[in-house]
Each structure stands twice: as structure tokens, then as C-alpha cells.
């Protein structure tokens, strides 16, 4: 796959190309000082660019075709994954996957939206847009985890729940609603991580938990910037403004106390150094699970609910 370069990454790539050319040249004459100067400049530029990303640029990073997806985290953060298929009611939804996994040797139940890597796998995964059976499979796995007292980790990465005829026939709304209620009472710790796109009901449908984490360049909101633009501005052209208005980044949501913790990404985004990303998430998850597993279950559920009850801004 050809490397995908986002607009704001172009200055970095241009410098990288320049350095490569100079290295070629360096074989004949000594310009090592010039090269090392340029390399320093690249580092500064990188820090500068990624510190000052606009919200829309972060949305683009969250959708980067090389960004790690649920299956990558399963392979690289967890071990001994046993995929469990199907909702035992209708069918198996490839847009949500789940199963047994181990984190540093500890058993966990893992559930996440699954996007594809290329056109073929994206068609198979329906671009990570789940149908009701996906949410019902998740519900089945949550109950299984509760039954055997294992913590649950969910990975959110979806452009939305699928808006289709069959999804409506089979009760997309009911499937999501039931999960929201179920997750508010499941008697085992739940850690939610927004790893990429967290679009609306389709995301929160597996997103209620004790700890809500979010990767630095992920986005999470009630609607995508594009759809928001088309509804409120009556045009697809205002996605940048919509992204700003929606305040959908990890930093925004931490400020609004919607999420608990930001999981930092390597410079340049998770795709720029996946190994570092996996290691960091692994450390964070391990700490969170240790903390949560010490809390008495009735207190855990109380705190989980109170956290969501406190969300909202109004005037008395």
C-alpha cells in the first residue's frame, strides 16, 4: 500500500525527501553537518505540527488508513485471543468482534468495532458500521464476562451504527438502547477506549463503563463533522467548522469531563509508531484493571452510574 500523506504532513515529507537527496550527495562530499541540522529541523517541525493540529486534522488522523484498528490491538496488546462469534439469535456481525483475551496473563473479555484495511476487508466489515446483531453479540459477551467475573475492555472505532433497511427491521435502536441499560448494570469492571472514530449511538452502544479512555487523536461525538455540516449548515462544505464547534477531540472531552483519561500517541500519530502505541495502551490498561479490580462491585456500579448522572450542563 502506498504511504498515505495527509495535507498537514507534507512539509515533513518534503524535508525527509530533501535529507534523502542530501545523503545521496553526501557520498561524494562531506555535508553531514547540514544533514544533522535538517534532521533537527524535522524534529522541531514534527513537534510543532502535531502540537497544533486543528480538530479536523485530528479527525483525519483518526481515520488514517494505516492507523491501528481493533484487530491490530488484539494481536499486539493482548495474547491468547479466542474469537467468539454470533449473537445466538440471528447471525454474526463482522463489524463488531469480541472474545477471550489475556492482558499480561490476566483474562479479559474484549469487544471492539472492527474496520477493514482495504476495500475488500472494509466491505466485509461494513466499514466498522455494526448492525443490531453486532450490538447483541456484544451484549452476549458482556453477560458472559459478568458470569465468569472477568473485566471487560471495549475498543470504539466506528463511523456510526449502520443506517439500513434491515438494521431498522431488526431494531437498531432497541439493540443500542438495551446495551446502554445492560452496561450500566453489568457487575464486572468495564474499561472503554475510543481508539479511532467514536460516532454517536453506534459508538456509545458499546461505550458505557467505569473508565472512559481516549487515544490522543481519536474523536468522539454525537455526529460526524460531515453530517453535522450537512444538517446545520445545509452543505457538506463546513466540516472544518463543524469539527471545531462539536469539540470532539480527546482534549476537549477531558475538559468537559466526558472522558476520564487521554492515552498519548507517539509523535505523528499511532500509525507513525504502532509498537510504541501498543506498549503505551498495554501499560495504561494494565494499571486501570488493577485499580478497578480492587473496588467492591456494588461501589463500582454506583460510581459508574453517578458518573453518567453528573453529565450535563443546565441552568436551575
Amino acid at each position: 500500500m502506498a504511504k498515505v500523506i495527509l495535507d498537514f504532513e507534507k512539509p515533513i515529507v518534503e524535508l525527509e525527501q530533501k535529507i534523502a537527496e542530501m545523503r545521496e550527495l553526501g557520498k561524494q562530499i562531506d555535508i553531514s553537518k547540514e544533514i544533522s541540522d535538517l534532521e533537527l529541523k524535522i524534529d522541531d517541525l514534527r513537534i510543532d505540527i502535531y502540537k497544533n493540529l486543528t480538530r479536523w486534522q485530528r479527525v483525519q488522523l483518526a481515520r488514517h488508513p494505516e492507523r491501528p484498528i481493533t484487530s491490530d490491538y488484539i494481536k499486539n496488546v493482548f495474547t491468547d485471543f479466542v474469537e467468539l462469534h454470533g449473537d445466538r439469535k440471528f447471525k454474526d456481525d463482522p463489524a463488531i468482534i469480541g472474545g477471550f483475551a489475556k492482558l499480561n496473563g490476566k483474562s479479559v473479555m474484549l469487544v471492539g468495532h472492527q474496520k477493514g484495511r482495504d476495500t475488500k476487508s472494509n466491505l466485509y466489515r461494513n466499514f466498522g458500521m455494526a448492525n443490531p446483531e453486532g450490538y447483541r453479540k456484544a451484549a452476549r459477551l458482556f453477560q458472559l464476562a459478568e458470569k465468569f467475573k472477568k473485566p471487560i475492555i471495549t475498543l470504539l472505532d466506528t463511523p456510526g451504527a449502520f443506517p439500513g433497511i434491515e438494521a431498522e427491521e431488526r431494531g437498531q435502536a432497541e439493540a443500542i438502547a438495551s446495551n446502554l441499560m445492560l452496561m450500566s448494570k453489568i457487575k464486572t469492571p468495564i474499561i472503554v477506549v475510543v481508539i479511532g472514530e467514536g460516532a454517536s449511538g453506534g459508538a456509545i452502544g458499546i461505550g458505557v463503563g467505569d473508565r472512559i479512555l481516549m487515544l490522543e487523536n481519536a474523536w468522539y461525538s454525537v455526529i460526524s463533522p460531515e453530517s453535522c455540516s450537512s444538517i446545520l449548515w445545509r452543505s457538506w462544505d463546513y466540516k472544518e467548522q463543524a469539527a471545531e464547534a462539536l469539540q470532539l477531540t480527546a482534549e476537549d472531552l477531558k475538559g468537559h469531563k466526558i472522558i476520564d483519561e487521554i492515552v498519548s500517541e507517539p509523535l505523528g500519530g499511532a500509525h507513525n509508531n504502532p509498537t510504541a502505541m501498543y506498549q503505551n495502551l498495554k501499560n495504561v490498561l494494565d494499571k486501570e484493571i488493577s485499580k478497578l479490580s480492587k473496588i467492591e462491585l456494588s461501589k463500582l456500579i454506583r460510581a459508574r452510574r453517578d458518573k453518567f448522572y453528573a453529565m450535563g450542563v443546565w441552568q436551575e
Binding site: L180, M181, S200, G201, R304, G312
Partner: peptide, 25 residues
């Protein structure tokens, strides 16, 4: 959900569903 309160609106889905769970219990 009301777009103008984006993340807060989304969270009302979880908030209302959780209190209904308590009613049921």
C-alpha cells in the same frame, strides 16, 4: 440528540438508560 450540546447530548443516552435500569431493579 441535540447537536449543539454534542458530547453532552450523546451522554444523555447513557444517563437516561442507567436511571431506567434502577427503576427496573
Amino acid at each position: 440528540a441535540r447537536m449543539q450540546e454534542a458530547p453532552y447530548s450523546l451522554m444523555q443516552m447513557a444517563k437516561t438508560s442507567a436511571i431506567l435500569a434502577e427503576l427496573g431493579e
